[in-house]
């Protein structure tokens, strides 16, 4: 890729994705015989269903993207990542339901809380490394999960039943204004992805990759690695919080299962399916994971999670670079082959 190429050619893939996903509800609407105008007015059941599935995928992709930045790019394996998501989701629910705050105030509050959490995790960062960090983050997140599940807070969180009946502002209600919700979620995903691409390509992002590869060497080169880790932590937390807020607004109830280790593992699985450290892998992985999960649950019922686990193990063993990573490696391997072939036909001058 040339350096002087324009924004459009650089991000061709994601822009095409954006356009296709924008058109998808209308195109699918044609199959069931509803005109684009009807879709625009949120009629038509099939396209509405597809929009719903799409929103879920975008939320998962946002979450996985933030996890990929933390784990794939910077090399911080946090088992408490679901906490960022869950705190935002619960905070949105409680602020809208119990405190009856205005919507934009809620957004501000959630983003503030995300920064505070990132700073809380960052307190630990300079002291612990590697596996110990994983354990500490798991510990912090499981404290939150325990608090959410406890009966002391049942009025606020609904304990193990989950938080139900969140009053969603009418202008983005997923029931009546689902198309708008869909477009907002899609736009947020694409904008975040573009920002992440830019971030990873920036000097700061380069240092983050260096931290993943060899932290001691990065330190020796004079970088204060802790600050970079904190920055990544805050960005990642903000993204996960955005995903959590969308989740709270979209789902009819917030279940405590989004706060436990299982949800972090879902994020890990998505990143693994897509390709660790590739960013676009998070989006591809979210699609693959959600569609696979949906199909399996439809046809297999209970044993679906067994097959998900098996797929996970197979990916770890045989496709360690994920879909996107493997494709990129193929490209690298096939490109010289093509060039050689071309060279045979048309010798170089």
């Amino acid at each position: 890729m040339k350096n002087n190429s324009s924004f459009l050619t650089k991000n061709r893939g994601i822009l095409i994705f954006f356009a296709v996903m924008l058109l998808a509800p209308f195109l699918i609407g044609l199959f069931e015989g509803s005109t684009p105008l009807m879709i625009w007015g949120n009629q038509g059941s099939l396209s509405k269903f597809i929009e719903g599935l799409g929103i879920e995928i975008f939320i998962l992709a946002l979450f996985a993207l933030s996890f990929d930045l933390l784990f794939g790019i910077t090399g911080l394996l946090s088992f408490g990542h679901a906490m960022f998501f869950a705190v935002a989701a619960y905070l949105t629910g409680i602020a809208l339901k119990t405190l009856a705050m205005p919507f934009w105030g809620v957004v501000l509050l959630v983003l503030l809380a995300a920064i505070v959490q990132a700073l809380l995790f960052s307190l630990v960062l300079p002291r612990v490394k590697g596996i110990t960090f994983t354990l500490v983050s798991l510990g912090l997140a499981s404290v939150f999960h325990i608090i959410v599940m406890s009966s002391d807070m049942i009025n606020l969180t609904g304990a193990d039943v989950g938080l139900q009946g969140v009053p969603v502002p009418a202008f983005i209600s997923p029931v009546t204004e689902r198309l708008r919700f869909y477009v907002i979620a899609l736009t947020l995903l694409v904008v975040t992805y573009l920002f992440y691409r830019r971030f990873v390509a920036s000097p700061t992002g380069r240092v983050c990759v260096a931290i993943r590869e060899n932290e001691d060497r990065a330190k020796m080169l004079g970088y204060n690695t802790t600050i970079f880790k904190v920055v990544v932590m805050i960005i990642s937390s903000l993204t996960a919080a955005t995903a959590g807020m969308l989740h709270a607004l979209y789902q009819p109830s917030i279940s405590p299962s989004i706060a436990d280790l299982g949800f972090t593992v879902t994020g890990l699985l998505i990143v693994l399916i897509g390709g660790v450290g590739t960013l676009s892998g998070a989006i591809v992985g979210a699609f693959a994971f959600r569609l696979l999960d949906f199909t399996l649950r439809r046809f297999m019922g209970e044993s679906a999670s067994f097959i998900t686990g098996a797929i996970y193990v197979i990916f770890v063993l045989f496709v360690p670079y994920g879909i996107v990573g493997t494709m990129r490696m193929r490209q690298l391997r096939t490109k010289p082959g093509w060039q050689r072939l071309l060279g045979m036909v048309k010798p170089k001058n």
Binding site: V128, L135, G139, V143, I146, I147, M149, S150
Partner: peptide
């Protein structure tokens, strides 16, 4: 202390110990 605080207390101990002694 309600039952959920039981695991929470050990987790807190862990976090404190790890902050002082990472090993």
């Amino acid at each position: 202390p309600s039952p959920p605080l039981v695991p929470a207390s050990t987790v807190l101990l862990m976090v404190i110990v790890l902050l002082i002694l990472p090993g």
